[in-house]
Computed example of a mutant assay.
Amino acid sequence: MSANNNNTSTLKSYVDSATGAVQNAVGNLMGSTGDEAEGKAKQQKAQAEYDASHTAAKVPGATVSAAGVAKDDPNRTAGSWNQTVGAAKESVGGLLGNETLKQAGREQNRSGQEQEARGQINDYTSGVGERLSGAVGSAVAGLTGDRTKQAEYQDRHDAGKTQQRGAELDIQKQTKARQQQ
């Protein structure tokens, strides 16, 4: 990714939404339907940008977003696998009446959940750190006029954002699944 103004940004969506709200309100007060409509359009565009900024898709072992692709922490994949194998052992143990196999499956499932959570936390915190260092580095490089470094730091920011969004997506999915149980 290069540093361009087409990247989705949560901060930019907030600024655009506030600008649109002010323009809408001023247009309403002044009786200018054109300004009012333009303000509403800015707010809608800001909402679309906000939504795009928070959109990510999971593929096996990675996350894909508008900002790029980020590989998952290995603990996330291994933990998910251990949960699956553990649940299978627990089911087979239950069907066969084998309490030892059932308990071993339950323990492997629990261990897998913990392992996956460690990977999610690592991806989330690492993503936040990469976003922050990328944003600061890009700003400094922009001030010094170093466009190459600015693009490198923007890439770091974008990779961190994707990594963070992937962890958030998994955490939200797991939270929703627990609430449905």
Rank of each mutant, 00 (worst) to 15 (best):
T175P: 10
D72H: 00
Q103N: 06
Q163N: 11
A48T: 04
L169W: 02
N75P: 05
Y124H: 09
A104N: 08
T100M: 09
A159M: 11
S2R: 11
E107D: 09
G112P: 02
H157T: 11
D35F: 13
Q179W: 10
E130W: 12
V22G: 13
Q120K: 05
N82K: 12
G94F: 04
T100I: 11
E168V: 13
A52Y: 03
Y124P: 01
A57M: 10
A48L: 08
K161N: 07
D146Y: 05
T162C: 05
S9V: 04
K176T: 15
R118H: 08
A67L: 06
S80C: 04
R110T: 15
S65K: 01
D35G: 13
G34M: 14
Q120F: 00
G61M: 00
N122C: 04
G142F: 05
V136H: 08
I121M: 03
G129C: 06
G166D: 00
P74W: 02
A78R: 08
G119E: 00
Q163L: 10
K173L: 04
D73T: 02
V26H: 11
Q113I: 08
T10V: 08
L29S: 07
D35P: 03
K71R: 05
D123W: 02
G79S: 03
D16E: 14
T33I: 14
N98I: 09
P74G: 05
V140I: 12
A78C: 07
Q150I: 01
G86W: 00
G86K: 03
Q83S: 06
Q120Y: 00
L169A: 07
V22N: 12
A70W: 00
A66P: 00
S13E: 07
V15W: 15
A52Q: 06
K12T: 12
K42D: 06
V140Y: 09
L96N: 15
Q47F: 11
A56Q: 01
Q180A: 14
A141P: 02
G137F: 05
Y14V: 14
S91C: 07
G119C: 01
E107K: 05
G127K: 03
Q120T: 02
L11A: 13
G160A: 10
S32R: 07
Q115E: 12
A48N: 06
N28I: 00
D72M: 00
A46S: 12
N7H: 13
G145Y: 05
Q154C: 08
D16R: 15
L132Y: 13
E152F: 04
D158I: 02
G34W: 14
E116D: 07
S138N: 06
G39Y: 02
G129H: 07
G127R: 01
A41N: 10
Q164G: 05
S91F: 10
V92W: 09
L132H: 14
K40A: 07
T33G: 10
S65Q: 02
S138T: 03
Q83D: 02
K149Y: 12
S17Y: 15
D51E: 08
A70C: 06
G61H: 00
L96M: 15
R131N: 11
G61Y: 00
R106H: 10
M30R: 13
E114M: 13
K71Q: 04
G119N: 01
L29E: 08
G39N: 01
D158F: 02
D155Y: 12
A56I: 00
G34Q: 14
L169E: 04
E90K: 12
A66S: 10
A56E: 00
K12M: 13
T148E: 11
T10I: 09
E130P: 14
D158K: 05
G105M: 04
